[in-house]
Design a protein around this nucleic acid. Structure first.
Lengths: 412, 412
DNA sequence: GAACGTTTTGTGAAAATCTCCAAAAAGAAT
DNA sequence: ATTCTTTTTGGAGATTTTCACAAAACGTTC
């Protein structure tokens, strides 16, 4: 027993799995080893007793997202990131978690992994805690090896990604070959997703990002890189039927988590259409940037839009503005309505805009304007008279809508 | 009596009015003299008896439009344009016309005016007819004088108009001065209206045009000129409240009459927005031409549109097309819908287009598609699923509409 | 042709929208 | 102050639209 307390882990071992079994034997409980992003690195097979959370972790080769979220909310992970000591986690039946003890594995001042010990039928003692700490220290070197191997691969990936983004790779075969040489299956369909941060992305923030991306299970992130204040991702949806939905959800999720977990605010997502041909990565990248630049120009109207497709009319608004300016065009209807508003200080223009925004829905628009539906009806009648507009004509309505938005844009 | 039959009109007279009185005395009935466009040139005051049609003619200094229309329909004017002999017109109480006799005044093979004799209490005899013929002959020279004077003025007007259209006159004062020197009051607001003919406009057609324009009383035509197959007008609406309405009506009226009266088909009208500043005549002209060129590109969709304002989205469609082509943009939703149509040979795309054309009106669209309203509803639901569209978002709908039209355009 | 999924059509009830009228309120004009 | 016009609001009733459900028709696949 004395030797055991001394340091039972100072022996040579080939694989992390072997090492996990060793810990398991020493502490007499199931052991799981994860990297910093909660990907499964190894697990003990010696002890067959386990809990549902561990099973899903092993099956999926990563800790389930809901478990991670719970551990963040409840404070375990933040604690593990602060201290080098073991942390005890209480039973959480709703996510299938038994009592367990966790410890983080450190390389200098950075966490590079975790060891989990599940307390099946006995709780670990103070002594065990000391042993666990020694185990964590012993695991460090093995993990570092894995990391450097990964880093090299990542560097090559990054270079390849930039070539894709800038359109340097001309043929589809060349691109697919590159993917394979990096041992990545090229996604059947993809989009480029860019998160724009308020400030340049520091190394520290980069780690948080990396963590969030790796733990995400909503969408597949094939490649990612960082450019000043932009995080650029090559992503593909797991659900092929409604990819936009998935992407939207992920974008919102990412922004939310960055704010809640790390206090980083003001991240703006923008993503491209979905493409099948990898040669179009460059185009996809441009679309994403275009989304971001348009979101800057029309922040209010495009607040909930992240996707180039969903930008709708805003895709082409600045181009139209340019033409309208060179043509010195003036919308006659809007002009008359403005004149009327001026003269009678009414607000027909505002009324019109809300009505069009609300997709011609009288009730919704009336609610937003805080007037009676009949009032709105009356105003609309006046608008058709004064502006000589026909609301049954989608054509005319569109131009009104466009010109309204343009006016607004010009005023700013 | 003998001398009277010989030629009572071979005397000198100063004005046409004097001459009208002379005829009136000889034939013992009220006399009116008009130019080829039914503008009043002179009328007898000797005889006080008259009829409502004559009164309005004198008051308005032109024959009322409904009277002219009636005389065309009923054949009097066509007859007068064919023969040099007097024509008798029957009583037409509904338009206030008594019995009367008319004769056309000729210069070579062209009618340059008319003389009207109203048969108040006695019908004109054969003898009177011969006298009338002599009167017409005598009136000819006087009318010619008037015409040449007018022609000179018209030439100067034409030159001025072209300067306006091409934007050669820089300051508004300069333009207003020009107007005044031509004894024209510059209209407070105006539009440029262009009729495009299928063939170059011959002199003969020009006469018909001139006639139609001069007899029109719906809108004020300040200036007009002809350029190859285009008739260009500077017009202003008499009704300031709904100028577009007036202009639309006139455009349709002109096209109709040219076809019905002269058998000239395929005339396409196009007119600009309404402007107040005469420096913008050039812009107005460009807008009109733009309408015509767009009508050529989208003949079906823009068939009932003559006005730049009402062109709606078509104003900017070719510009958008250009951008979409350089961007190699592809609408994801439409792509998926097309694929679905292809695979299941359905017609979701057509359904979508009709639905959008009909301004989201299920019933109207269903009628046009010859399906049950529920069928349409079902299809729309499928469209939102397959194309990942949200029909409550006016933005998305607009882009769909635009891209649909663009596709259609590209296919042609 | 049986089995299956997709599409079309029909029905009816609930919800909404529209139409019309009238009264009140607010502004403008005299 | 009063008249007149314009605007807002309310409500009742008619009309439309929407929605869910079910049956029938159609197409594909085995």
């Amino acid at each position: 027993m004395n030797t055991r307390l001394h340091d039972p882990f100072k022996t040579a071992f080939d694989s992390l799995d072997e090492f996990a079994d060793l810990i398991s034997q020493v502490l007499m409980c199931p052991i799981t080893i994860e990297d910093a992003n909660h990907r499964l690195l190894a697990y003990s097979t010696h002890d067959e007793r386990t809990d549902p959370a561990r099973i899903s972790t092993i099956i999926g080769r990563r800790v389930p997202e809901k478990v991670i979220n719970q551990l963040w909310k409840e404070g375990t992970i933040p604690a593990l990131l602060k201290t080098q000591d073991p942390i005890r986690v209480k039973n959480m039946n709703d996510i299938g978690l038994n009592h367990r003890v966790a410890i983080s594995i450190w390389k200098q001042d950075e966490v590079i992994g975790f060891i989990w010990a599940i307390e099946i039928d006995k709780l670990l003692t103070e002594e065990d805690f000391i042993l666990l700490k020694k185990a964590a220290d012993a695991a460090k070197n093995k993990l570092l090896q894995l990391q450097t191997r990964k880093n090299k691969k990542e560097e090559r990936s990054q270079e390849f990604f930039w070539k894709l983004l800038t359109g340097h790779l001309k043929t589809t075969e060349e691109i697919v070959d590159h993917f394979h040489s990096l041992q990545i299956t090229p996604p059947a369909s993809f989009a480029v997703l860019v998160f724009q941060f308020q400030e340049n992305i520091s190394n520290k923030v980069e780690q948080s990002i990396s963590y969030l991306l790796k733990t995400n299970q909503r969408i597949k992130i094939t490649l990612y890189t960082i450019d000043c204040n932009q995080l650029i991702l090559l992503v593909s949806a797991t659900n092929l039927e409604s990819p936009f939905n998935d992407l939207d959800q992920f974008a919102k999720y990412f922004v939310l988590q960055m704010r809640e977990r790390y206090g980083i605010k003001g991240i703006k997502p923008g993503y491209s259409s979905i493409f099948e041909d990898h040669q179009k990565t460059n185009k996809a990248y441009k679309e994403s940037l275009s989304v971001l630049s348009i979101k800057e120009k029309f922040p209010l109207d495009t607040n909930d839009i992240f996707n180039y497709q969903k930008l709708g009319i805003y895709q082409i608004l600045d181009m139209i503005l340019e033409k309208r300016q060179t043509d010195a065009y003036e919308n006659y209807s809007l002009k008359r309505l403005h004149e009327y508003d001026e003269k009678h200080n009414s607000n027909l223009i505002e009324t019109l805009e809300v009505f069009l925004n609300k997709d011609n829905n009288i009730n919704d628009a009336a609610k937003e304007l805080n007037v009676h539906a009949n009032t709105l009806n009356y105003r609309l009648k006046r608008i058709t008279e004064i502006g000589e507009v026909n609301f049954k004509d989608p054509n005319q309505k569109m131009v009104l809508y466009l010109d309204l938005k343009l006016e607004k844009y010009q005023r700013i």
